[in-house]
Design a protein around this nucleic acid. Structure first.
Lengths: 232, 232
DNA sequence: ATCGTCAAATCGTTCAACAATCCTACGATC
DNA sequence: GATCGTAGGATTGTTGAACGATTTGACGAT
């Protein structure tokens, strides 16, 4: 059955625009295409060997995911999140993830393990100082939390929020430091959940959001000041 | 200042694809383009006098909002929500709106009035038996609740959820009955909020979701059975 | 130094064409 | 009679070129 579903997913994947969008998404999240960069239709279309119309469809897909911003008659740019953007993102995450976490008592173990396991993996990678993998596991942890709600749509929207947030990380100095410093806090959340104290876990998650938001906003402000110190 | 912002918004509005998408969105939400209907590129493009490429961009925009579904090499169709879709929608709304409502003590009066006023308007329209306007005010009520969270992204996602839900209403027999029957429940929520009992309001909101979801799922099942009684 | 004016570059949109895919109906085979 | 394979037509996927509209940047005038 699993091989069948796998084959189906493979068959359904198609559309040049989709493939181009996937490729560009990786480049953006890798940081190869830096925030603020303008994506010329002609240049990118020529480099990838696709027509302008198809490329524009790919741009639309990435604009939907908020990785690109579209300015009329000026082109598309890699989004460079501002402090306001980060505040907005965390306001959304607070509501979604705290609300999802409240469903912990109602869900089965497969959903619960989707929250527990990423933390185990993160600590394992942490001892090896593989900060990139720690960050990836951290994302899976929060993805697992959203999954508790049991809504496919909510999970997809959260993925967009996460992707946008990773874009904000690209602007600051060392992204890994953030993931590293909040790992013990995440461990505590899982332990509180295992001990049955859901309310305490939610409180600690909210505290994590407060800290992470303030930290990221400050680093973003520093980066902005460093790039444009001649303002006004 | 307000006139400036208004002018800017007017200037920024452009893009044929955007206008086409707006027109189609109305038609879909009006029910003129019924759920399940296939939208031929040639037919619609010819009728609206836009090229296929531009029309396809409009289709992408509406697909992002989940009003249309795209099937590879088969075309785009007006979405016809299933029971699973409705369950997913309500799972998302439960998390978002209950979480947003918890922020009631922290927000100012302008945000609170965005929750209170629609209920006043709904009851006013209810005495005149103008059920369509009652439904619209009901949407504004829930939109106001989401607005308490203070996240633009969350509000936009909720708008998409609402639009999709209105699509589900189009499938059932009389959409107005639903809005009408839940109006007193919404009044109680506002009264609980005004009395300071936020927890009670959240509980009642959750109860509203349970009732509305069950009702809609059942009506959807009946509509499905009525349309395809020869199955298996 | 500020303000027009102009040219180059790029985007927005359209059109026409062809390949790829899907749907339907018609027979062929068992 | 039912299932399967096979053409045929219709629609989508993608491309390439074209032209008007908008932005950008530089140049020169006041």
């Amino acid at each position: 059955m699993s091989t069948l579903a796998q084959g189906k997913a493979e068959l359904e994947r198609a559309s040049t625009a989709q493939k181009v969008a996937d490729m560009l998404r990786e480049r953006v999240l890798d940081g190869e295409l830096a925030p603020g960069l303008r994506l010329s239709e002609e240049a990118i279309g020529g480099a990838l060997g696709v027509s302008r119309n198809t490329l524009r469809e790919a741009f639309r897909l990435l604009t939907r995911d908020r990785l690109l911003v579209h300015e009329h008659s000026r082109g598309v740019f890699v989004r460079s999140p501002t402090g306001d953007d980060v505040r907005d993102l965390y306001a959304a995450r607070r509501v979604i993830e705290c609300g999802a976490l409240a469903k912990w008592p109602d869900v089965d173990d497969v959903r619960r393990n989707a929250v527990r396991m990423p933390i185990e993996e993160a600590t394992a990678h942490g001892t090896r100082k593989d900060w990139a993998k720690v960050g990836a596991a951290n994302i899976r942890f929060h993805r697992g939390i959203v999954g508790l709600a049991g809504s496919h749509r909510l999970s997809e929207e959260s993925d967009r929020l996460f992707a946008e947030l990773m874009l904000a990380f690209r602007v600051v100095s060392d992204p890994e430091r953030l993931h590293m410093s909040y790992l013990p806090l995440n461990r505590e959340i899982v332990e509180l959940l295992n001990s049955g104290d859901v309310g305490g876990a939610i409180g600690k998650l909210r505290a994590y959001f407060d800290l992470a938001e303030a930290d990221l906003v400050e680093q973003l402000a520093q980066a902005q000041a460093g790039l444009a110190p001649q303002q006004s």
